[in-house]
């Protein structure tokens, strides 16, 4: 029996956590129990999310869940799927990943690992104390952004976006130091953000892609039948995870409405158009940083007729 310790920066019930459990079950099933995966959720193995890339590269762990949005400091190419407003639905996500995966696989190989599966995060929205229904509501709003792109975009659109440690967010909400948070529907509802911020505005920011990759040396040491089984398990996990997105978003909204969250799915169009406008230069900036590899984005846009 081969035992693989697999770290994940997020929890068991997060989108990635659920996908990891599915992957482990499929691997066990397809290898007849020859490979057993032991999960380490919530960063409990001591690694930060950004550490996973080198942890797998060096063989500290045999495999890991990689949230690609953490890896912009290694290579801006990892940030493709966290560029705002590229995708609007599941088909878009699927098309983006199809255009992306070969080149991404090569990039991961440069870090001594083999890409076997992909997952995704549900899109982020605005959790707020007062309803955010239009661009006017965003002006001067003290909002906690979650990455560099969101920080720049919300600042550009007139909000008072701040960068704040996640551990401070709840106390800051309870005392009124901030009035809004950009995060996904499920992350918000699961940590009870709705107790402070009873309004959620859907903006479909991005659907960031995450992947599972296995250390190349560990991979090469596997007999061919096990490699094949793991690849099959990975592909099936990808399919199931992508297919789950629509029901996942529905489920989140149901849960939120049950907790009396005011879900605003169609805010005044001026909100989104302003955010898209401010974000456009960020995407151009990304293009210039990745050079030729930006062709992947063009291929995706062409495929979806955008």
């Amino acid at each position: 029996e081969i035992v693989w310790d697999m770290p994940n920066a997020f929890g068991r019930n997060s989108s990635d956590g659920v996908a990891d459990v599915v992957f482990a079950e499929l691997v066990a099933e397809k290898t007849n129990g020859e490979i057993r995966i032991v999960h380490h959720f919530d960063g409990s193995l001591g690694y930060k999310g950004v550490d996973h890339l080198e942890a797998v590269q060096d063989g500290g762990v045999p495999l890991a869940r990689h949230a690609l949005s953490y890896y912009g400091g290694y290579d801006p190419y990892f940030l493709l799927s966290s560029q705002p407003f590229l995708v609007e639905n599941v088909d878009d996500v699927r098309a983006l990943y199809d255009a992306y995966k070969d080149e991404l696989g090569k990039t991961m190989e440069g870090y001594n690992q083999v890409l076997v599966s992909a997952g995704l995060f549900p899109p982020s929205g605005i959790w707020s104390r007062e309803p955010v229904e239009s661009l006017a509501d965003l002006q001067g709003l003290k909002i906690r952004a979650f990455d560099l792109n969101s920080l720049n975009t919300f600042t550009g659109a007139g909000a008072a976006a701040v960068n704040m440690n996640w551990g401070d967010v709840m106390p800051a909400l309870s005392t009124g130091a901030i009035d809004a948070v950009v995060t996904s529907a499920d992350l918000g509802i699961n940590s009870g953000i709705n107790d402070y911020l009873p309004n959620f505005t859907e903006i479909n920011w991005a659907v960031p892609i995450s992947v599972i990759a296995i250390n190349k040396d560990v991979w090469d040491a596997l007999p061919e039948n096990l490699q094949k089984a793991v690849l099959e398990a990975g592909a099936e996990t990808t399919d199931r995870t992508f297919a789950r997105l629509a029901t996942q978003v529905e489920g989140n909204y149901e849960a939120m409405k049950a907790k009396k969250v005011n879900v605003i799915t169609s805010p005044n169009p001026d909100l989104r158009s302003k955010l898209v406008e401010v974000a456009a230069p960020l995407i151009e900036d990304w293009r210039s940083k990745v050079g030729d590899k930006a062709a992947v984005l063009d291929a995706y846009l062409a495929a979806r007729g955008k």
Binding site: G11, D42, G167, M170, P171, S174, N190, S191, G192, D195
Partner: peptide, 15 residues
């Protein structure tokens, strides 16, 4: 806060 995140329990209620 960390318990709230891991256990998915409202931090306000925990406080």
């Amino acid at each position: 806060i960390i318990y709230g995140i891991v256990a998915e329990v409202s931090v306000a209620k925990l406080f």
